[in-house]
Design a protein around this nucleic acid. Structure first.
Lengths: 233, 233
DNA sequence: CTGGCTAAGTGACCACAATCACATAATAGC
DNA sequence: GCTATTATGTGATTGTGGTCACTTAGCCAG
């Protein structure tokens, strides 16, 4: 499918680039759609594209030696993944799976590398992005240190709450929330345990499910306190 | 203490730089020694130095909301840490603690930034290094997914075994091995549990302690099988 | 040599999350 | 619509690692 420069400029990391550059990148990029559960990036392979997420939600996952699934991070629309090879030409370290039907734009790494020569600004952006990834992985690792299981779930949920709702503590909606299983592998928990925590959260009217693609966060202040551990579930 | 260009060129990441550049960097750098348990880098602070490790072993640690210690990574001699701010000017995300008495070289970030303009090669190196950090964090995260506790410990031990011994499966020595506690926080385990696993490893003559600063790995092939899960402890 | 301190070893106990085994929704596909 | 499939809810059971409470060993300073 055809990629327009306008589509590319929808991504904050590409937006600052001049129109001409975007036009060139657009020509070499391709829109790829994946169904739920589709494998967007494969671990161990030298992917030659950076994957920009336009719509839906992705999850980076790895597998332990004994085949157990491990959740690493979520990717939200506007963000991208698979950029590690930009820096070291190494293989993609983890799988990236579509949690919902997704629309992505694949931009060839080699073209992006070209652009970084002409526009160091992009290089800077990529560096900042990678740094952000390290910070995120670190935060997620700390989460796993929490001995209290419901706090762990609430923290993870908290990170999915939209930015402005986290600030103003107003009610909000999480779009395409991960399934219990997908949350479980992020937190080293069993699916059942996550289910039980959600059960309590729903009974206490802190969150409310609305179909499969919406999760209402009604009582944001309480969720915050639960995530911070100042209140027990 | 005075830093010589020769000292700087002992670090693989700086070695390729021209002598003149190294001389300038050396002038602005400082040697800092820390005792065991010394705080080398502080979380939340905008550290204005990249810390190169000359001798000893460092550990990146974070704390959960409820004050529990979490181990993130080890730093070996020749490597460096605290470079995240080079990319995004953000604060240091985690603490870095000296596990042994250490000798470090602190190079001012601003000087390093200057050098990256003149020598894009350094920029490339830093990028590769950051990518390596992401790969390492990812691997460590997968480790935590292992349901079998002794396998987790053996995997971690395996990563501490010198490169060539891992290749050739010959006996080797781990210098300044982390304490049980330090391993425990890396693996989300209690100190006692790590102690019990080591007890079995020693009884089965797979490893042998030799004072506080040496750990002999006698049966490398078995350790490898234990780490891979093809053998149970 | 002798305290003092930190690291490591070990048993007893038990809370708690994993697992198993289902039931029941809720979707998606036809 | 109806069926197949995936997601979720829930009880019963149990294994396992955490915690506690010590002891023992090793190391360093004076």
């Amino acid at each position: 499918m055809q990629v327009t420069p306008e589509l590319l400029s929808a991504f904050p990391s590409l937006k600052p680039l001049p129109a001409a550059t975007l036009a060139r990148l657009a020509q070499e990029s391709l829109v790829r759609k994946f169904a739920r559960r589709g494998v967007v990036l494969t671990a161990g392979v030298r992917e030659e594209f950076v994957c920009f997420l336009f719509e839906g939600r992705l999850q980076g996952v790895d597998f332990t030696i004994d085949g157990r699934e491990v959740g690493l991070y979520f990717v939200e629309p506007g963000d991208f993944c698979g950029e590690l090879g930009m820096f070291d030409h190494g293989p993609q370290p983890e799988f990236v799976i579509a949690l919902t039907a997704v629309v992505t734009v694949f931009v060839p790494m080699e073209s992006l590398r070209q652009v970084t020569f002409e526009h160091p600004m992009l290089l800077k952006l990529l560096g900042e992005r990678l740094a952000a990834r390290v910070r995120q992985l670190t935060r997620q690792r700390s989460l796993l240190g929490l001995p209290n299981i419901s706090q762990r779930v609430c923290c993870q949920l908290w990170m999915l709450v939209p930015e402005d709702a986290r600030q103003n503590l107003n009610a909000s909606v999480i779009n395409n929330p991960p399934t219990h299983m997908e949350i479980a592998i992020m937190l080293n928990l069993s699916r059942e345990t996550v289910s039980r925590v959600f059960q309590i959260l729903q009974t206490r009217q802190i969150v409310r499910r609305d179909g499969t693609s919406l999760l209402h966060v009604s009582d944001t202040p309480t969720l915050k306190r639960l995530a911070e551990g100042s209140e027990e579930l």
